[in-house]
Amino acid sequence: MAMHTPLKQTYNYAFLDEGSKKEIRRATLKAVAIPGYQVPFASREMPIGRGWGTGGLQLTLSLIGDGDTLKVIDQGNDDSVNAVSIKKLVQACTNVAVTTDAEQATLIQSRHRIPEVPIRADQILVFQVPIPEPLRFVEPKEKKSKHLHAEMDYSGIWLRLYEDIVKWGKISIGADYPALAHKRYIFAPSPIPRYDLPKLHQAEGLFLFGAGREKKIYAIPPYTDVEPLAFDDYPFEVEHFEGCSCRLCGSTDSFLDELYDEAAGQTFYQCSDTGYCRKCRERGAQHGK
């Protein structure tokens, strides 16, 4: 059986009709022009589940062309079922090459991770976003949160952080940690770990965020200030991996997945970025020779 069967001619190149792709690109340009601002767009229904990466997929399909090399990761992993499924779909309706090497890719679609190797100026990283509105957990209504952004009234979210400190002794937000884009809009970086958030600050590459069900596109363009929300006496902290290393490549400077070996009754760690881990191992093997 072929690895991927090309879709029949009834579907356009890159699935969406050209009018739709143009509309998505126009929304994307606006998003790039206003860092962190959520641009509403007429999100299309895609052949994957709503909530399974349709926003990211629409961005990818609106941008992709024959010269591109695509990498798709889910939680850092190239081989995760949803990443494989998305990659298969893009391959079925385009002629693009795919890779697991972040440095070879021109376009990377990711769910909840930024690759360990920094994104270059000639690369675009597309995020899949479940909830694009950082104020949603303090203000459930879209109409209201839009006003709050317009007036830069962010007291609600600051208060929430303060209450966290009172209650837990520290800010209790795990992933999807809110940050301020270029001193103007608070934005949700999608559920990437806090570990990845500093990678958005003054970066070389372009970061695009697509929320399909919520019908929003936003962007962190190159060289944008990205400041995680924090207090002077309660600074922003990333996840702790002191004393841990990847059991496969030995890396101590990457985001690690925690795994539990039931048989051995042991906790061990492994790079979440599988492409990075593979390269580390290959390099290690070469040095070994």
Binding site: W52, D74, H112, G174, A175, E239, F255
Partner: peptide, 19 residues
């Protein structure tokens, strides 16, 4: 779509929450 997306892996977010 939204309800069924809970079937996807959430290792990263969960790891972050665990931390």
């Amino acid at each position: 779509g939204f309800v069924s997306h809970l079937k996807l892996p959430h290792y990263i977010t969960f790891q972050s929450k665990l931390d």
